[in-house]
């Protein structure tokens, strides 16, 4: 069964309006707060448009899907180093610029709370409620020493570039963020 057929079956199982729903694919390759935010905003809005939305998390993008308590992961000392410096989970993402050792994200999140902007974590939960499919990249998981237990629940099966291309071939919207 191809990834598309799997996606179509999932869409039907979840009671989407139609198995023919337009597809939207986002490749989320960044663990920066200022990238993860638009990823989740566009994913939820795509779902509000009745689209069949899949977000494929690869490389640092996987940080978004890491459990807050995942801690140091992997067996190799280099993988463990990654776990020391990249904590993962939506609450711990940094900014691509003006990070200032966490001061930037702290200010940004404070502003977002004051202005009532939904957080990345809230949008992630909302996306799951709205039937957005979240795919972790298998290769990145292997590279970084992450297991399914290190990631949040409710994700789709880890997949690779072939599945992503297969989906994007027929998607109306494909984004790399």
């Amino acid at each position: 069964m191809t990834a598309q057929e799997t996606a179509a079956e999932t869409a039907m199982a979840e009671g989407s309006d139609s198995a023919e729903a337009e597809k939207m694919v986002i490749i989320a390759a960044s663990g920066d707060l200022d990238k993860a935010w638009p990823v989740m905003i566009l994913a939820t809005t795509g779902a509000a448009y009745g689209m069949d939305v899949t977000v494929f998390f690869t490389f640092w993008g996987l940080e978004v899907l890491k459990r807050p308590d995942s801690g140091i992961t992997g067996d190799d000392w280099r993988q463990k180093m990654l776990g020391v410096f990249r904590k993962g989970s939506p609450d711990k993402l940094g900014l691509s610029t003006m990070n200032f050792a966490g001061m930037g994200p702290w200010m940004m999140k404070g502003l977002a709370t004051d202005k009532n902007v939904a957080s990345v974590g809230e949008l992630l939960e909302l996306a799951q409620d709205m039937g957005v499919k979240l795919w972790p990249c298998q290769m990145t998981m292997d590279l970084m020493g992450l297991s399914n237990d290190d990631l949040i629940e409710g994700l789709d099966k880890p997949a690779g570039a072939g599945s992503a291309i297969s989906l994007m071939k027929d998607a109306s919207i494909s984004l790399f963020i």
Binding site: T44, A47, A48, K115, N116, V117, A118, M130
Partner: peptide, 11 residues
């Protein structure tokens, strides 16, 4: 509520 919540809530 800010973007994208008005559209999401309406949908």
């Amino acid at each position: 509520l800010q973007c994208p919540m008005p559209v999401i809530k309406t949908s």
